[in-house]
Amino acid sequence: MSQTAQAPIEAPERTQHLRRYLMCRPEHFTVSYSINPWMEPANPTDTALAVRQWQKLYDTYIELGHTIELIDPQPGLPDMVYTANGGFLIDGVAYPPKFRYEERQGEESWFTQWFRDHGYEVRGPESMNEGEGDFLLAGDVVLAGRGFRSSDDSHRELARIFDREVISLTLVDPRFYHLDTALSVLDPVVAPGETPTIAYLPGAFDDDSRRILEERFPHAIRVSDADGSVFGLNSASDGKHVFISPRATGFEQQLRERGYTPVLIDLSELLLGGGGIKCCTLELRGAER
């Protein structure tokens, strides 16, 4: 008796949504202190290489039609390249950072002024937070990380300012100290009420947070520890193209199976400071006069 082979399930066609990002050239990048497990001041860094790798990311965004704004790098602030930590912005309102570590607190005024100069209404902050490093917009809700950097009070402050549901997720692995190192929103634009696809590293979260993610995002991509440990989830997406580390080979295949187009960008030098593609990419929503 012959059996008819089942046709493979076709991945949905993905739609690109052009984005506007804020970036900062790593002209002063180095690792002179340690505020996360990736930073080893004893190991040499190559600033010129960091700039070349960053430039590749910048050029790729431009080639694919995205708009890039730049904030000027400042001497003595080597982590300013990680602009995702510089704020969280929706509908022309900017919520600037209030960094946990003194080494990064000098960045706060520069980001705040940039937002004002580009037409954003600046609100807060009163509470410790590290911007889009810990706050990710997922459809109608904000996913908010806690456990290492941003405080619970910042989650409540965020909910008041933006009048959106904020879902708190607890990070438990020091290597994944920001939410954007362990979770990526793959659909930056969805219809109201629609649930976007996300990808996440289960082991980076506590049991309660994993349950929340499973309930709220049942079709999420669960990424392996091997891909998470090379910062595969520290990625940016325009809904079609997903910009990821070339070392996250399993995640690359998972994305292809879902109909996304992986774009491989090597930021290995910037990983020495504990940052990757998403860390260097702050989404700008609204404003600009």
Results as ranks from 00 to 15, higher is better:
residue 151 S to D: 07
residue 151 S to C: 09
residue 154 S to N: 09
residue 155 H to K: 13
residue 155 H to C: 15
residue 157 E to A: 07
residue 158 L to C: 11
residue 158 L to D: 06
residue 159 A to F: 00
residue 160 R to S: 15
residue 160 R to A: 15
residue 161 I to Y: 06
residue 161 I to N: 07
residue 163 D to L: 10
residue 164 R to S: 01
residue 166 V to L: 03
residue 166 V to K: 04
residue 166 V to N: 05
residue 166 V to T: 07
residue 166 V to D: 05
residue 167 I to D: 02
residue 168 S to K: 15
residue 169 L to W: 04
residue 169 L to V: 08
residue 171 L to R: 02
residue 171 L to G: 05
residue 171 L to V: 10
residue 173 D to V: 15
residue 174 P to L: 13
residue 176 F to C: 01
residue 177 Y to G: 03
residue 178 H to E: 10
residue 178 H to K: 14
residue 179 L to N: 07
residue 180 D to R: 05
residue 181 T to L: 11
residue 181 T to F: 08
residue 181 T to H: 05
residue 183 L to H: 05
residue 187 D to H: 05
residue 188 P to A: 03
residue 191 A to P: 07
residue 192 P to N: 08
residue 192 P to T: 11
residue 193 G to E: 11
residue 195 T to M: 12
residue 196 P to C: 12
residue 196 P to N: 13
residue 196 P to V: 13
residue 198 I to G: 07
residue 198 I to K: 02
residue 201 L to K: 01
residue 201 L to G: 01
residue 202 P to A: 13
residue 203 G to K: 14
residue 203 G to D: 15
residue 203 G to L: 15
residue 204 A to E: 01
residue 204 A to D: 02
residue 205 F to R: 00
residue 206 D to V: 15
residue 209 S to A: 13
residue 210 R to P: 01
residue 212 I to Q: 01
residue 213 L to W: 01
residue 214 E to K: 06
residue 214 E to C: 07
residue 215 E to S: 10
residue 218 P to Q: 08
residue 219 H to E: 13
residue 219 H to I: 04
residue 221 I to T: 03
residue 222 R to L: 15
residue 222 R to Y: 12
residue 223 V to C: 04
residue 223 V to E: 02
residue 225 D to A: 14
residue 225 D to K: 11
